[in-house]
């Protein structure tokens, strides 16, 4: 059995959340270990929340919103995209694989699209399973512990 891959999905309620709910109603095969947090808009997802999710045990975080130009909140998804790019650069700088952060705009509003996008993302994180990037910088580490793991 595959070890659990905790995935947190922030979904804007205007597009991807509709896809997610429909995927549930249609009983599509969805990965068992993701949690979805409905947001009013992807622009409300601050990078701080994503950092906290990673520190609290998530293996991957997905942010899904409407397509550019289709945002209900004055194009807030563009600002979100700029902020998340910066977050991705910060993760990259300290050696966490940016592939653990998945950002999608307007690709998950149909049930099958949502299921597909989510499985693809989980496959991407599963490929990183051997990487030791995330546990290294996760919360509550004690000094010196597991230092011998260093290659």
């Amino acid at each position: 059995m595959n070890p659990s891959l905790k995935t947190l999905v922030f979904a804007c309620r205007w597009c991807p959340l509709l896809g997610a709910e429909r995927a549930g109603r249609e009983r599509l095969a969805l990965p068992p270990d993701f949690r979805l947090i409905p947001m009013e808009c992807a622009g409300a997802v601050s990078p701080d929340l994503i950092l906290r999710a990673f520190a609290d045990g998530a293996h991957g975080v997905a942010v899904m919103g409407c397509h550019f130009g289709g945002c209900r909140h004055n194009g807030a998804n563009r600002s979100a995209h700029t902020r998340l790019q910066l977050l991705s650069a910060a993760l990259e700088a300290v050696g966490i694989r940016p592939a653990r952060l998945f950002v999608s705009w307007g690709t998950a509003h149909e049930a099958r699209q949502f299921a597909g996008v989510l499985s693809d993302f989980q496959a991407r994180i599963r490929a990183l399973r051997k990487e030791k990037d995330l546990p290294l910088l996760r919360g509550n580490f004690t000094p010196g512990h597991d230092r011998e793991m260093r290659p």
Partner: peptide, 22 residues
Amino acid sequence: PSFVRPAALPPSPLPYHLLRAL
């Protein structure tokens, strides 16, 4: 306290150093 846990040392780098830098 919901981001940086009080009295936890060393603090978790993601919500401390990265959050501050961002």
